[in-house]
């Protein structure tokens, strides 16, 4: 379980997170939605320990990762898989080497088992046969799938997705969402998806939290969010700006 308690962060005097409180339950797929530039990716970086907050806590299975650093933090990160915006694949490695990388570097494993697990991961994301390609030779959608395979290969208990479908066409977008749902069913991880794909995300997430002006303004199941009376949520869903809302 991940608990975010009163999380605050400012950059150059500008408050990006303004007291976030959110609980993500074990094995659920939680989507965090909100407009671009609203602090969603900054929030995700706090959850992975890449940024330290000015105030507040992030409890991962009861351990406050804000207070950890170095090897202790790395110990918690062993539980994580992260799918970055754009994939963040290593340019100098092939698709196969990218997927094998975390396993090869972190786990003592013989070559045969490593090969089998990489093939299985590539199969999960429907990329068998693409192992020899370099990231520069594959499409944006394929990069996200490779990133998903790389995130899942260590069988993490928590997977973070930072806008995994940004810039993709609707068909590829739906195929990535389907893969997230399928792999979630197969591996049973706790998933946190940063997204602004409305309405597609309603078919993916178990619960949705809406981030606006640095605070979570609504949390609920997809149906609850769809039927919410909160004007910010309503206007985000129908695609209109909310210029002067103060929570």
């Amino acid at each position: 379980m991940i608990e975010i308690i009163d999380l605050e962060k400012s950059f150059d005097g500008q408050k990006v997170l303004n007291g976030i409180d959110l609980t993500i339950l074990d094995n659920e797929l939680m989507a965090i939605i909100g407009k671009s530039g609203g602090g969603k990716s900054v929030l995700l970086k706090h959850l992975t320990g890449l940024i330290k907050p000015d105030k507040g806590s992030v409890l991962v299975d009861g351990v406050d990762i804000v207070r950890l650093s170095g090897r202790e933090l790395d110990g918690i990160r062993e539980k994580f898989g992260v799918v970055f915006q754009g994939g963040a694949l290593f340019d100098s490695l092939t698709v196969y080497e990218n997927v094998a990388f975390p396993l090869k570097e972190k786990v003592k494993i013989d070559r045969k088992e490593l090969h089998e697990r990489v093939l299985r991961a590539l199969e999960d994301v429907e990329l068998l046969g693409m192992g020899k390609k370099y990231p520069a030779e594959i499409s944006g959608g394929m990069k996200r799938r490779v990133a998903l395979a790389r995130a899942l290969i260590t069988e993490p208990s928590i997977v973070f997705f930072d806008e995994p479908t940004t810039g993709l066409d609707p068909i590829i977008l739906n195929s990535i969402h389907r893969l997230i749902v399928d792999t979630h069913k197969k591996y049973g991880f706790t998933g946190v998806i940063i997204s602004h794909d409305i309405p597609e995300i309603f078919d993916v997430a178990d619960r949705i939290a809406m981030l606006h002006n640095g605070v979570i303004v609504e949390t609920g199941t997809p149906d609850e969010i769809k039927n919410s009376f909160n004007p910010i949520v309503r206007q985000f869903i129908i695609g209109m700006e909310v210029p002067s809302f103060k929570p």
Binding site: K45, T48, L50, D74, G75, R77, E78, F80, V82, F84, Q85, G86, A88, L89, F90, D91, F101, P102, E105, K106, F160
Partner: peptide
């Protein structure tokens, strides 16, 4: 620098490497 802005360095850190 390109590894930094394309989040490849963050990816290493997030892998506990």
């Amino acid at each position: 620098g390109i590894m930094r802005i394309s989040e490849q360095i963050d990816a290493l850190t997030a892998m506990a490497l």
